[in-house]
Nucleic acid binder design. Sequence first.
DNA 1: CGAATATGTCAGCTTTGTTGACATATTTTC
DNA 2: GAAAATATGTCAACAAAGCTGACATATTCG
Lengths: 160, 160
Amino acid sequence: MPSERAQKSPDADTITGPMAEIDDIDFDIIEQLFFAYRDFTSDPDAILSKSGFGRAHHRVVHFVNRRPGMTVADLLDTLKITKQSLARVLKQLIDSGFINQVEGVRDRRQRRLYPTRKGRELALELARPQSRRITKALSGFAPEEQKLIGKFLRAMVDPQ
Amino acid sequence: MPSERAQKSPDADTITGPMAEIDDIDFDIIEQLFFAYRDFTSDPDAILSKSGFGRAHHRVVHFVNRRPGMTVADLLDTLKITKQSLARVLKQLIDSGFINQVEGVRDRRQRRLYPTRKGRELALELARPQSRRITKALSGFAPEEQKLIGKFLRAMVDPQ
DNA sequence: CGAATATGTCAGCTTTGTTGACATATTTTC
DNA sequence: GAAAATATGTCAACAAAGCTGACATATTCG
């Protein structure tokens, strides 16, 4: 039932003009970032849905592969989520043999995280389509120009 | 209880080397995109949490303000979510006076979406910190270089 | 008129985030 | 050496936002 809320024609409090580059706001880039990230994550999401994992698992697998030996605290700080959120997906990844925990040598309270061979392979499989997309998007850019993209992305991140 | 799963030292199936730029994969940019988007969304998230809305509401408010008069089908295609997911947040935005629905003129089945003044103001408030972040990240880039960023982001999006 | 389309809605499920509380092992501090 | 701080794990409950499947209504199209 196309709802009863719909008006027959715009009332006094209905704005019909687009929110454009007035107000000196960068709407175009805001929007492009949304679209870029939406499609950037769609490739690995499709792969993950087969194996019963989700985007949260992807992030953990990615970072543990990038920085083997990172502690749980490191990972929490990187992902900016709570340890209870992390615990759920991390446990699954450990139980299914994608990640190993090793007691810290200097500090035995720490649980240092390492990928297994299986974990390394999964990380690579997920990174491949993303890298393909990036390579394609960067084709046509000169090497110097490609560096600017990285510079921009880093500048978008909060300090610390 | 620091779990019993932890090994005392790396076993045979524990990979200790970082997943680096071997394998011709663009790990750096993959990672930078994650960090950039993580912090990019953190500003509006903080604002929204006060008013009881979430990131999903933000997206709807943004696009309805950018393209007033868009149909529900347009919005679904833009966000790439199901209509049941959209229905929940859209209803809340309509009920609380941020968005109006107007019956389509040519096709009366359509519900064209427009922001109210309140809706326009919210969209602006949410865009402001994001735009500030972008402007800051782009400072130090020449105008020609800034255009490259947009070109890259557009190239990251799936065709159509 | 019948089929297709645009939208709405009910019900239930999943993933991934949150808070709060508490337990254990280990290290650091006094 | 005892006490405090730290690193991690875990239980329970809840919330946001995605999903599927099924079905209803109004309108348009063929």
